[in-house]
Amino acid sequence: MAITINGDAVSVPDDPRVSLLDLLREDLRLTGTKKGCNQGACGACTVLVDGERILSCLALAVQYDGRAITTIEGLGAAGALHPLQQAFIEHDGFQCGYCTPGQICSAVAMVAEARRGVPSHVTGDLDAGAITLTHDELRERMSGNLCRCGAHNGIMAAIAETFAEAAE
């Protein structure tokens, strides 16, 4: 019984009540992933499971046995920032920073979804194939990540610049 977290095998907790979020933060001290609402409303706890974005607060860790989790610590580190982290700095994509790890994990998977043609609420032609990330598409696809500081304009600019080949 093991979950792979940022490349390391980690034992599944004995208590099935432990959320993936609490496993990361409390047991592994990977505190980059944040606990905002703890009820699936804010997106601060977003992590990647086999490349797909999910909310770790609503995930029982025991369900993720055998899966590969990537957190913000697995995307970049001090001195070796992910390009999107660098872009967040350059575009003032945060103030308090609490939503930032979730925003960045979410955006990385969001771009992959758009590349494989997953439609969104604002997609016009459902049969068009790959999605061009217009401003409206970006905002809709990132709507599951709230920013109470109101840094959304910087966040959108950072994502659009980093993934320019997918954006308009």
Partner: peptide, 12 residues
């Protein structure tokens, strides 16, 4: 489906 919840929740 895409009118509901968020992408993270729809993935789960």
């Amino acid at each position: 489906i895409v009118a509901g919840a968020s992408a993270q929740i729809r993935n789960m």
